[in-house]
Nucleic acid binder design. Sequence first.
DNA 1: TATTGTTATACTCTATAACTATA
DNA 2: TATAGTTATAGAGTATAACAATA
Lengths: 165, 165
Amino acid sequence: MTIMPAHSHLEDAAADTGAAVDIGPLSGLIGYALRRAQLAVLGDLGRCFAEQDIRPTQFAALVVLARNPGLRAGQVALALGMRRANFVPLLDGLEARGLAERGRAKDDRRASALFLTEAGAAMLARLEPLLAGHEAKFAARLGPDGRCQLMGLLHRIGDAAFDPG
Amino acid sequence: MTIMPAHSHLEDAAADTGAAVDIGPLSGLIGYALRRAQLAVLGDLGRCFAEQDIRPTQFAALVVLARNPGLRAGQVALALGMRRANFVPLLDGLEARGLAERGRAKDDRRASALFLTEAGAAMLARLEPLLAGHEAKFAARLGPDGRCQLMGLLHRIGDAAFDPG
DNA sequence: TATTGTTATACTCTATAACTATA
DNA sequence: TATAGTTATAGAGTATAACAATA
């Protein structure tokens, strides 16, 4: 893979006005392709959830709370791949809208015990068809086999532990 | 795909202290897998380029300038998928370090003509082996066939046009 | 009037350090 | 002393609006 242009002489440079831009080796990089794909998918999910005023990360937090009632805030943050400090305003927003609530753990009075409210569960129920539509959109582009292959390949990449502290 | 937990009764909630967190349907979502993979790859590229104090986006700009000498700023920004306004500080940083330079187009005195300096070309030459090492790391996890499959699948997702304006 | 580069600004996401109250 | 949640803050990334020079 060569990065430098075929003609390195700046004197014969053309403004390339109107012509397509040559991105060179970028198009062959895994990270570049990942970035483009992730922008497309995350942007679409954001638009699908916009009618409920829910961001993808908020949705992920609601799902984790639904599946793990009473979980500590730090555990949720870890599961979402974010710092404990950055989870605070996210949870503040969910609690202010009555979608989640903060309790206190019985055995450890420092720790919190987070729960989804009924409104939060209802929100998840409204998000479910929106999520299904979003997912189906991209599954259709990939085909059943393609989607399965992609998930396996992405897991091989992403399963390299990343510890946000 | 069901989002709600099997047991919705908050009364029998367990703190799950120590146990693995159940992320439910998130693990099956294309967007979630993409996010994890992209964090792993982009983070690794950032660490590989850290010794040269170059960020992935700066690298991409250098590559585009190398392959398209004399290109306008707005064209570079478009190729990088960012707004013209946000490209200004990025280019400022490259110019301040002597890696790129701003010229003026001959035919249109509003437009700029951007060039890589010799120092910029030397920087790209130093980055090339770092990039190769990074790319090989993930290619090894995927295998030749896996890497080829992944690139094709990611292009099928990311080729949905996104216009940053 | 429209466009190029630019400035200013704001909002999100992310990262670090330090505080509090518990343990 | 160590930990959980929190606060404050700073840095990137990204968004819009508007301005001066030029077309």
